[in-house]
Structure formats: structure tokens, C-alpha cells
Computed example of a mutant assay.
Amino acid sequence: MPSENDYVLARDYLDNSRLNLYHYHWIDVFGYRTHPKIPIDGSDLRIADVGTGTGVWLTDLGARLPSSVQLDALDVSFHALPPKEWLPQNVTVRHWDVKGDVLDDLVGVYDVVNMRNFVFVIKNDEIKHVLANLLKILKPGGYLQWGESDIHDWRIDKIHPDNKTDAHKRLMEMTLGQDLRLQATWVGEMTQLFSEAGFEDVEMDFRKPEPHLAFAMHQCQLIIHEIIPRQTRNESVRNEVERLLPEVHKETVAGACFAITRRTVIGRKPKV
């Protein structure tokens, strides 16, 4: 079992609240929990949420499905998840590291597998192995849905060319330089990677949020920068982030925000 420290952020109430809020912003942007081309009309489906975190995607979707659908929360840590006693009865909690080996009893069992927000977890040299694992746990004809923020399209939007963005730029530079997991390039290559892994009917849906949603998501994501000072052992980085955040807030209120393209990619495992 991998170390829980493999996660670059935190698993505390601040980070968990960010993830829960971000989920609903994501639904606002895309308009669905599962892509319209993924069939979820059966009563005997088995669905997995890999890297489930707070479990918000799984429980939100489950509330719209028959209680006979089996929902599996897969992760290396469940510190962000509610106690099992407070989860719906059809939710099963299971330790599994998507970067490790596929457990025998997970081979070929899922109709749908969901993943989201792994850009901070998976490095470029790990993505092909991860996709091979995900293909293995799907039933023939089953679907993988994977949503990510494309950090290589991380930009600063502003309402007027003269708006100050110096603090935003400095914070962006510092964030991307802190960890190799924040420099992954595989998000923009996901359709090709899906096809190379053996998925069929691969399709990418990418969205640039409307300005009011981009602004809301920007404020939600700033919580990450509240977390960084508590996580880093680099005192100079901690002090600089703490100095920058009030300036970023001023620039935000004046009409500047981080904006990122979001991508959802789906692919189907061949039926034979």
C-alpha cells in the first residue's frame, strides 16, 4: 500500500470543503455527472470512483440511481470520506492504488469507472500503466470517464487590460515549480493515450467556464494556496505565499482570476 503522503495537498476540512465545492462547480460547467453517451439506466450496475476523496461524485450520482446499483469508493486513504456508517448502504469502501497492481477480484467487474483531479498525483511516466489498470477493471463494453483541469492552459483572465495581475503571476510561478506532479503534460494528450491503451469510442469534452463560473472556481482553487504554506517544509515559500495571497485577493476583487480549461475524456473497453 502506498504512503498517504503521495498526495501533494492535504486531507483536512479545508481541502475537503474545496473538493466538495469544486465538484458542484464542475457539474455546473459540464452539465452532467456521467457523460450522456455512458449508459447508466440499469438497476444492476457496478460503478467505481477511483481516488474517491470525499466521495462526493459517487454519492451525488448514487442519489440519482436505483439503490440496487453497487457503488465502490476506491482510494489509498479514506480520511476525507465520511464514516462508513454515514454512507449510503450501497457504497462499499475499498483500498486500492491505481498506480499499483490490479487486485484479482477487481478484474473485469465495473460497468463505469470515474476518475477526476489526478493531475496532482500521476506523473508522465505513470499514465500508461494507470490506463492499463483501468482497462482491466472494466467489464467488456464498460466505460471510463476521466476529468481533469489542464494546468498547461492555466492563464489569467481580467476584465480590463490595465488590471494588475503581478501577484497572480508570481503565485502561479511558485505553484508550478513546487512539485513535478504539477508539471504533468499528459492531460492534453488524453484522447491519444486512451486510444493507445485499447479504449474505443474515445471522445473529449472540453469546456472553458463562463466568466462568472471561472471566477467562482478561481476562488475555490485559491484554497489550495492556503494549504501550501501548511504542507511545505520550505520556509521561504511559506512566507512568500502568505505574503502574496492578500495581494491576489485584491487583484481578484478588482477583476482578475486564474482560468483553466477543463477536460472530460471517455472511452469504452472493447466488447470482445
Rank of each mutant, 00 (worst) to 15 (best):
D97F: 09
Q89V: 08
P83F: 06
V76P: 00
D104C: 04
D49Y: 11
V91M: 02
V102Q: 05
V112Q: 13
H79M: 11
V119G: 08
L71T: 08
V113I: 14
D111H: 15
L87Q: 10
R116P: 04
Q70E: 15
W96E: 08
V76D: 00
F120W: 05
L58Q: 01
N90Q: 15
D75E: 09
N114P: 03
G62T: 07
V113E: 02
P83Y: 06
N90G: 05
P83A: 09
T59L: 03
H79Q: 15
V102N: 04
Q70D: 12
H95C: 06
V56S: 01
R64P: 02
P83W: 05
V76K: 00
V102A: 04
L71Q: 10
V50N: 12
V91K: 01
D97K: 06
M115A: 06
L103H: 05
R64C: 12
V56D: 02
L106G: 03
D97G: 11
L71F: 10
D101N: 08
G100S: 15
D72M: 06
F120A: 14
D49N: 11
E85H: 10
P66N: 10
F78W: 07
H79A: 15
D75A: 11
M115W: 02
L74G: 00
D111Y: 12
Q89T: 12
K84L: 08
D101Q: 10
I47H: 10
D97I: 05
Y110K: 07
L74A: 00
L87Y: 09
L71M: 15
P83V: 05
V50S: 12
P66M: 07
A73D: 03
V107Y: 03
N90S: 11
D60N: 02
N117D: 13
R94V: 06
L71W: 08
S67E: 09
T54I: 00
A63T: 10
F118D: 04
L81R: 07
L65T: 05
D49T: 08
L61R: 03
V98H: 03
H79C: 10
D97L: 08
L103N: 02
T92I: 10
P88W: 07
P83S: 13
A48V: 12
L65E: 06
L65A: 09
K84F: 05
V91S: 03
L74H: 01
H79D: 15
K99C: 10
V109M: 10
T54R: 00
V113C: 03
